[in-house]
Amino acid sequence: MSPGWLLRRVLLALLAAFGVSVLVFVLLRLVPGDVVTQLIGLEGNVSAAQQAEMRRLFGLNEPIWQQFAHWFWALLHGNLGISLRTDRPVFQDLLLRFPVTLQLTGLALLFAALIGLPLGILAALKRGKSADLLSSTFVLVGLAAPEFWLAILMILLFSLKLGWFPPNGYVTPAESLAGNLRSLFLPALALSFSLAAATTRIVRASLLDVLGQDYIRTARAKGLPGRAIVVRHALRNALIPVVTVIGLQVGNLLGGAVIIEQLFGLPGVGRYALEGINLRDYPVVQGAVLWIAVSYVLVNVIVDVLYGVIDRRVVYS
């Protein structure tokens, strides 16, 4: 991997982040209403002069290009702005909430790998048999069922009926590690279903393609054990498409975390963004979306780097 390639990827990531910031900034201001109208609904009757003064204090009376210039200049200095509702720095709130979202998506990735990889391998090795049919059924259900629907079913069954897991709330690892895992188990499992299904499908297809290659036939002709052929030769070469799918699906995980965090009452970045959208808190929404976008772009850079680690034939220049 050359330094020039890495520099280009970083520059492209910064360009993508800038594009996202512009798009979110403009779209937010096209939505009817603003934070002042939301506050008026909470406070009661407010005169037009008071509304105008509130918009002046929030900087909403300036032209949109000027508002963006102020926000972007602050962004270049590491300042994501101040929440219009709480008067707290957005960056500080994101730092507090991001570990929750990171832990949730990390567990979802782990569950997806633990479910998808074995099922995909089993389906490829048992092609056309009952195990393959069962895995295909799981893929169909996992890709078709909405995450929020699965989450509601899990809450009804495992929380309200069986009482195995709490229906909502979050326990920090410092308070109780076991309680932390219990509070995140159902949300992460619900979030992982679609990725587990996609992983199962791509592992099966990729492994079947690799198992049909000439070098696999040669290994079998030499008398190598079947497990060694699958693990040491076939599986490693089949992992590149799998890594690609997982990397691309991270964006879906981050997007799905918005609904999952709201359903389970998790204080993550997704719920923070949703609260900002509901109350037209522009700095919160802009900061949260930009944070998620940068995280997604960084994951894609990491995926590109992993290509070279998994397959030495992949060289970036």
Rank of each mutant, 00 (worst) to 15 (best):
Q92S: 13
T86K: 07
L134M: 14
L76Y: 04
H70I: 12
L96N: 10
K126W: 14
H70L: 13
F72Y: 14
P89Q: 03
R97W: 06
D87A: 14
H70W: 08
L109P: 06
G120H: 10
Q67H: 11
P99W: 03
S130E: 01
G106T: 04
T105H: 10
F72V: 13
L122G: 04
F72D: 01
A69N: 00
G81L: 02
G120M: 08
I82H: 03
L94F: 09
A113W: 13
V100Q: 00
G106K: 06
P118Q: 09
D132A: 02
I115P: 04
K126H: 15
L122K: 09
T86A: 10
Q67C: 09
L75S: 12
L110Y: 04
I121Q: 06
R85A: 11
G81S: 07
Q67P: 07
L109C: 06
Q66G: 00
A124G: 14
R85T: 09
I121M: 11
L122I: 14
W73T: 15
G78S: 05
R88Y: 10
L122H: 06
A108L: 07
L110K: 02
H77Q: 15
R127Y: 12
L122C: 04
F98D: 08
L107T: 02
A112V: 07
R97A: 13
L107S: 02
L102M: 03
F91C: 00
G106R: 02
L76R: 04
F72L: 15
D87K: 10
L80V: 06
R85N: 13
L114M: 15
L109Q: 04
K126T: 13
R127N: 13
K129P: 02
S83I: 00
Q66I: 11
Q92F: 06
N79V: 02
G106P: 05
L119Q: 12
G81H: 09
L80S: 00
V100F: 01
K129D: 11
T86G: 05
D132T: 01
L104G: 08
Q92M: 00
L125N: 10
F98N: 08
N79R: 04
R97P: 04
S83K: 04
L109F: 07
Q66Y: 11
G128L: 12
A123F: 06
L134V: 14
P89W: 03
H70E: 14
L104V: 06
A113P: 03
L122F: 12
I82V: 15
L95P: 00
V100I: 07
D132W: 01
L122Q: 10
L119A: 15
G128K: 10
F111G: 08
L104A: 08
G120V: 06
P89E: 05
L75M: 15
L117S: 10
L104K: 05
V100R: 00
L104D: 04
L104Q: 08
R88Q: 15
D132S: 06
F68C: 06
P99S: 08
S130H: 11
G128V: 11
R127M: 05
G120I: 10
F98E: 07
L76A: 12
F98M: 13
F91T: 09
L119K: 04
P99C: 06
L75C: 08
S130N: 00
I82A: 00
P89F: 07
F68L: 07
A74H: 13
A108C: 06
L117C: 08
G116F: 03
S83L: 05
L109Y: 06
R127Q: 15
P89R: 02
A131H: 07
